[in-house]
Simulated scan of single mutants.
Amino acid sequence: MPFIRLLLLAVPFIELAGLIILGQAIGVGLTLLWVLGTIVLGILVIKSQGWVMVQRLQAQMSQTGSPLIVLKSGMWGVLAGVLLVIPGVLTDAAALVCLVLAWRHRGQPLPGEPGGPKAWTRDGHTVIEGEWKPGDEAAPQRDKHIDQQ
């Protein structure tokens, strides 16, 4: 826990050092333009992700589906927007990672939902359908095999 506190205290100094280095490399004017541009972009991402998430949540709930995947994707998008609003090079790089994760998780069905892997419960265990590829693993024993009924 003390490491996390020290890391949170160090982030503003790391961001400041990154902006100073960026300012020396490309100039003060372009660095200020970079900071203002990412702030505006962050606000736009938050606004768009918020509306998209609300619309997708409404559609998902009207189909009595699980809102988890919509929330997961929307969370990454909103977090990316918040990170873009915070001035700094490190947070901008983290925002890019969050945007990629939001795009990757967009629209993936959960197990048990239409289009997703099938899921069922047997003997108190939840089984999620998956793919098996032959490899180094031994073939499953017949007495441990679960058949769908």
Rank of each mutant, 00 (worst) to 15 (best):
A17P: 06
A119E: 12
V100A: 15
P117R: 15
I26H: 02
P114I: 04
T31I: 05
Q148R: 14
M61E: 08
L22C: 05
G88I: 03
H145V: 09
A80T: 01
G23C: 09
A80F: 02
G50R: 12
A95W: 03
V40P: 04
G37F: 15
K133I: 13
R56T: 09
P111K: 07
S62F: 01
L99H: 13
G74H: 03
L7N: 11
L6H: 15
K144V: 14
L84H: 10
M53Q: 07
G77V: 00
A25D: 10
K133G: 11
L36T: 07
K133T: 15
G50F: 13
L44R: 13
Q63Y: 00
A94R: 05
M53T: 15
I20L: 15
K72T: 04
G65M: 08
L6C: 02
S48W: 12
D136Q: 10
E113H: 02
G107F: 06
P111D: 08
P140F: 10
V45N: 10
P2A: 09
W103C: 10
Q141M: 07
P2C: 01
L30H: 13
Q63W: 00
G81L: 04
V35K: 09
Q55K: 15
L83C: 09
A59P: 00
A102H: 10
M53A: 07
I43Y: 09
V40T: 05
A119G: 02
P87M: 02
L57H: 10
P117T: 04
Q55P: 00
Q24D: 11
S62R: 11
V35G: 10
P140G: 05
G124M: 04
A17G: 13
W51N: 12
V127W: 15
M61V: 06
V70M: 14
L79W: 01
I46N: 02
